[in-house]
Design a protein around this nucleic acid. Structure first.
Lengths: 210, 210
DNA sequence: CCTACCGATCGGTAGG
DNA sequence: CCTACCGATCGGTAGG
């Protein structure tokens, strides 16, 4: 190969290394939290020395922010596709909940806590902007559409806006993703459990318990 | 004072110091998380040197477990009193949600994450036992009672048990306690906001959005 | 309850 | 991308 091909090849390796770092950092940060994960842990799992990380990212916080950015944008793409399907409100919300349960783990609570306590105000504002566009607004739009079609007539009786509704749904999804320490139900696969839970959550939210 | 009085006095001071440590540690642990809080921070805020903490607690983890134990037991007492009042299901749940919103902050998610990742399995099991008795079962009992009286007829249609219902309620309460980064509503006091949110949550849970 | 101090680990830098 | 290393901070101990 000539020098041009060699450069491209090396650049490709550089990008692959960067992606490996982001994936490893994602898994560790989301499970253990920002402070509990050391740059040496990340580097070791990628087969690198710790100072090598600083060739790809200026510091630990920049790496963390990049992890969050990629996570939010990937989710946004998938979620918008699901919520635009020509199906009923109930079916779309169920599929949305199912997707979130399978593809996110218990990471959202941890992520928000870290953002609030480990990042500066400017980074927080930027991430909340990404979060609103990627996670919240697609769901809000679905509830607004349903409200216009008169399918959420109780909205004003309870004082619950479409934004509240989206928060409720995300809250129920988050709690369903927590490792259920109380009822270990190992008889079902992850997919089966997520499908069952997604149906239950949406039905409770739409129709109530009583 | 004779020597006996002096001993009692000194023992009283010892207890007061211990309580001050627990209160300070509670506030710091719940806000920033177990790993992010150093024993020196706790000691400084109590007017002590860091090694002095080890006169009251064998190590950082023992202190953390004691913080959790006292928190759960105090909540258990208050919650049981509220849920035994001779009022409707809706009213009792509203008052329960209101109490939790005012007296707990955003600490529960942080607490559970720390328990899972920073403590050994034996400590986890002990704390989950406390949690079930103190937090979950009183709410489960209320839903079971309502189910027997036929007030939750949709229970089997959705597959939602009283335990699920209690988890849903706690989940909605937890998310309502999160600092709402999205809708800063500083026009209302904490009490007013908690009252409004507790009503909204219980109504959505009982009657649904549509 | 203090002073003095320990080994371990952290995020990050220098220099190649 | 490596070796070598820095100052800061951590939880915990010794000894009084």
């Amino acid at each position: 190969m000539d020098s041009k091909d060699k450069r491209n090849f090396e650049k490709g390796e550089h990008v692959e290394t960067r992606n490996a770092i982001i994936k490893t950092a994602h898994d560790l940060f989301m499970e253990y939290g920002y402070r509990s994960v050391s740059t040496r842990q990340i580097a070791d799992l990628c087969g690198l020395t710790q100072p090598a990380l600083y060739h790809h990212f200026t510091n630990k916080k920049e790496l963390y922010i990049e992890v969050i950015r990629e996570t939010i944008f990937k989710t946004q793409t998938a979620v918008q596709r699901i919520l635009k399907r020509p199906q009923s409100l109930r079916e779309r919300l169920q599929q949305y909940a199912y997707y979130m349960m399978l593809n996110h783990h218990e990471d959202l609570n941890q992520m928000f806590h870290d953002i609030e306590h480990q990042l500066d105000a400017a980074s927080q504002a930027q991430i909340y902007q990404w979060w609103m566009n990627g996670y919240l607004m697609p769901v809000v739009a679905v509830f607004e559409e349903a409200a216009k079609e008169g399918k959420l007539q109780n909205q004003y009786r309870f004082g619950a806006t479409p934004i509240d509704a989206a928060h409720f749904l995300l809250s129920l999804i988050k709690s369903s993703m927590e490792p259920s320490k109380f009822l270990k139900d190992s008889s079902k696969s992850r997919q089966e459990a997520a499908e069952e839970k997604s149906h239950m959550i949406v039905d409770v939210l739409l129709y109530g318990l009583s």
